[in-house]
Simulated scan of single mutants.
Amino acid sequence: MNDLEARQLRYFVAVAEELHFGRAAARLGMAQPPLSRTIRELERQLGVMLFERTTRQVELTAAGEVLLRDARTALEAIAAAAHRARHAGSTSPRLRIALKADIDGGLLPRILDAYSADPAALPPELVLGGFGEQPQALRDGRADAALVLCPMDDRGLDSEPLVTEPVLVALAATDPLAARTQLCLADLAGRKLPSGAPADAGHATARRPGSASPASNLSEIFNLVETGSIVFFAPASVARRNPRPGVAYRPVSDLPECTLAIAWPQDARSPAVAALVRAAGAIAAGLPARAEPPVESTLPQGHRH
């Protein structure tokens, strides 16, 4: 059997994720016939069927499911090798930290100060991204470490929890629910998250504050909240840093807490990454225990487990 090519794997992953040859071809910027030929050739090369094709749908076979998992890992490794080689070959390679702006538990300035206490340490480069993009930035080599909300996709990554805090619901100050001091998920029936998912869906949506939002930043999200178009699950630290007259933050009794962690690739051997993890851990270890807010407060304090 000939060695598989990255191009074949990339084409296969597109079809496997779209489960539609036309959409996969559009995603790849190519015509459908050569894509179909490539997939048929890949199946002949492997000696197995990767897709079950009917006139109505395309589905992965058991062999296709296995190849999809391993193909993603292989493509990530190829991308990571290129990114890391370019970074290492730069004149003064700096530590790259991936994060979503404002989702740092308020710890980032202190972590950077502690890391930069070493005179030999170059100022880190911040790699900003959207909600949930940070683990992938680590896997494909665009970042060396990341601040992430857990749970996360931790394939190939190690992590250390830093701070766990309550998650509040942000809703319009004019919403009738804002008159109450505490809510439960069932109270949010009929309201939508930024992703369009129902706010009362429980763990399926509540475990990832801010997940899958079409709005590009928190300012846009809060503007939509103020109009009553959506509600938003915000970590307490985000609520504290974003007081707005038109937004009310309320605790939700059955909404899981969220944990901010620092993550890095399992195969990392960088002294700079190790120094950053130590700095982050030291800052988190010095956090005070959670102070329960007064009942009338809308901004509970974060805490350290």
Rank of each mutant, 00 (worst) to 15 (best):
P300A: 13
G156K: 01
L276N: 09
Q266G: 08
P135D: 09
P166M: 03
E292D: 10
L177I: 07
A284N: 11
P300G: 13
A275K: 14
V48Q: 11
F21I: 03
R56G: 00
R142Q: 13
A71V: 10
V231Q: 13
V163L: 14
G64F: 02
A145Q: 09
L99W: 01
A239F: 11
G22P: 03
R10H: 10
A62S: 04
R250C: 08
L171G: 07
V163M: 14
G47E: 03
Q182N: 00
L138P: 12
A173E: 05
E52D: 11
E125L: 15
L138M: 09
R69E: 14
K192R: 15
L188Y: 01
R250T: 09
A71M: 08
A121V: 03
L128R: 09
V225C: 02
L177T: 08
E125Q: 15
R69S: 14
V163H: 00
V295W: 07
A25D: 11
A263E: 04
R191K: 15
A26T: 07
A234D: 06
R37V: 03
R139H: 06
D200G: 07
T38N: 00
D154E: 07
I97P: 02
D102R: 12
P271E: 08
A215N: 04
A274D: 12
R304V: 14
V238I: 09
P293K: 01
R40A: 13
L276G: 07
R139I: 06
N242Q: 12
R155V: 06
W264F: 08
Q134E: 15
E41L: 10
T91V: 08
S211F: 10
V169E: 05
R44H: 03
E76C: 04
H20D: 15
A204F: 06
L108Y: 03
V148P: 01
R240S: 05
